[in-house]
Design a protein around this nucleic acid. Sequence first.
RNA 1: GUCGGCGUGGCGGAAUGGCAGACGCGCCAGCCUUAGGAGCUGGUGCCCGAAAGGGCGUGGAGGUUCAAAUCCUCUCGCCGACACCA
Length: 818
Amino acid sequence: MASRPRRSAYIPQDIEPKWQRTWAERGVMKASDSSPKPKYYDLVMYPYPSGDLTVGHARNYVMGDALARMKRMQGFEVLHPFGWDSFGLPAENAATKRGGGLHPRTWTLNNIAKGKRELKMLGILYDWDREVTVSEPDYYKWTQWLFLLMLERGLAYRAMAPVNWCPVDKTVLANEQVINGRCWRHPDVEVEKRDLEQWFLKITDYADRLLDDLAMLERWPQKVRVMQTNWIGRSMGAEVDFPVVGMPDESIRIYTTRPDTLFGATFMVLAPEHPLVERITTEKHRARLREYVEKARKETEIERLSTEREKTGVATGGFAVNPVNGEKIPVWVADYVLVTYGTGAIMAVPAHDERDFEFARRYDLPIREVIAPPTGPQKMLREAYIGSGTMVNSAQFDGLDSGEGIERICDWLEERGIGKRSVKYRLRDWLISRQRYWGAPIPIVYCPNHGIVPVPKEQLPVELPPEYKPLSENPDWYETTCPLGDGPARRETDTMDTFIDSSWYFMRYASPHDDREPFDPELVNHWMPVDQYTGGVEHAILHLLYSRFFVKVLHDAGMVEASEPFMRLFNQGMVKRFGQVMSKSAGNGVSIDELAGAQGADAGRIYEMFIGPPEEDVEWTDAGLNGVVKFLQRVWRLVLEPAAVAGESGPLGATVDSAALRRKVAQTVGKVTEHYDELRFNTAVAFLMELANAMQDYLRGGGARDTAWEEAVRTLLKLLNPLAPHACEEMWERLGEQGMLADAPWPVFDPGLAAEPKIVLVVQVAGKLRDRLEVQAGLSEAAAVEAALKSEKVQGALNGGKPSKVVYVPDRLINLVP
RNA sequence: GUCGGCGUGGCGGAAUGGCAGACGCGCCAGCCUUAGGAGCUGGUGCCCGAAAGGGCGUGGAGGUUCAAAUCCUCUCGCCGACACCA
């Protein structure tokens, strides 16, 4: 039978609910819009309310909360808000899966209530007055408003386009949602192509700024900036017109990044969808060509984009003229040329392009070297030479370096009006139409008389009908009247991509209840930009790029001063268990209820941080959690029962010097503050453990419970508070302190207090460690050499000789080189 | 294939040019206890040695440096992103 716990034992369940109530009642994390304090905007990526919250998902919320709590204590007015990315497919899928009946909105709101309760159980504090739920009309009204703003600014347009169609979700996917030709949600399902009228946002208009401004984001992970750079994929080159033989008014415009290889073009390739294909094809080739184009159209993205696949194509029988040398070259059609990039047509230079080389080999087309590598021209090209070199076989350009050649040829083309410099991007416009119920309706009406008519802003929101069924099958909803003429009209039945919702939610937090505009300009400028943004790396491209785009558009519209939303970005690693990402559905999740009911929220919070480097994936183990529980219990006894701890036998030779304890405390203040700021919580916890160990040794060794001790106790509580707020708050109260620890000032680092009067000087001879000397700090080099030479070990290593060289790093190391 | 990241004790990891292994887990020995999945003390990279001490050591090979886990070159392995973008 378990013995009765001591009255003062640490029982998290007895104290955690109490403090959670108190913090809520006192509005500890309420952000004031009019505070004179400097602002700090601490944002975590809002989640999809899946109802699957585990301690794994909570890791970044704990980071955000710890940072918010420290920043508050440091005197900042902290904005730490939360919300729900509650539109989107999963709600529909889940609602459908559970036997229909359950409306996506009901399911969503249930999950939100559940998630909110669990976050509170972890002691995570948000300004819940600012909570946003993007699927509620008071939010999506403004999402629709922003769509109309895009339309007004010429950034939203409708176009027929071959779109990616997921046969399982029965919806169109954005380019970004297609991974290797497969649906991002169904990795085993190949995406089909369909032609539909769709709404697009012109993100490509902002490609240059999105790329160039990455340079401003110095506090973003390098990895994310590289990914965005590649995604935007800016390339510099030239467009060149190749006249078509026998068709005096036609020419084929190609795009190349290597104008210096123009003389090496031995054939041309059109994408199967290129508009000229039909007309350029000769009678003799028509049948075969039609068959090929037909096949290519049907082929799925995955087949077409596979690099392993052999390149195929057919000749059109048509010819074009290379404008630089008047040479007649054949025109082919091949599916390795994409109609969506560049001009949908290329000049093929097999000698200097791997793809063209492979194609030329297969179809026995000529290969002509025009760039000689530094080692000199090659007789037989065994593979394409794609590097730079000296131009050859290029008439008046022979002998030029290829870099220089690019410029000269571009000049030459531009002078004659047959080509021009051109910049292209991989980035495509953002397809935002979704054929789904659970999203913000696109606020457009189609009128037989007036065409595409935006819903007037004063009529927003265009609310979703209560019945859960496709909008296009709900005439009661889509049949309407034209805002311009009262005639019958039809609503747009597509809803918006949920990435639109998340592209501006962080600005809505500034004035979440504003019913006149998406956000109050004054307040948004007060809080923006976000100082710290924390979330998963899976959003490295989509969400972050779209949000940057939105902010730039709103900046241009004069609605927000910031031109970048997130100053510092951090991607936390995932929590795994038994080798897999933790989730309820995988059956390896540790729920927040379980944790709070067993070891307590505080132990869980510390463990989430101590478990490993914050940016790395980590493995959750029960043994590791127990180590943290022991640490918390040790702190509890140190603070509340120092007499009992002091009565225990201590280590031999323990430091019982009050001044040494003060130094240790001061050093810990410096290190913990710095590491919290850098989000290096794992090492911050280690420093706190060191301090607790030192305090325990101090007591057991007979250290006095004097002011140094009392200061140490209070500093330890302040430093630990961001991670273990319930326990620390309780101890603070039991110590008889007035006011809440959450409001106590953060300790200030004092380098003078932290300085050690004596240090251990490492003595090396020829770079090898030979001795350690305890010396006064700040020793001069001469004194250090003298001290080092006195050491027998050093003398032995020097073998009686004298050092010919001395390297002295004050207070650290001296290296004597014989 | 291209780009990026990582590789350190039995384990998670610390150290970003200056004492490798902080902190924790685990393990070993001892103490305390009616008992221990509790607490305390000491130990714990590897090799030689009774010890003192010495040698080796951050995936591998080379290099730069008085000094390298850290910087450079090559290489192996794992992970991630992109993947015919002309």
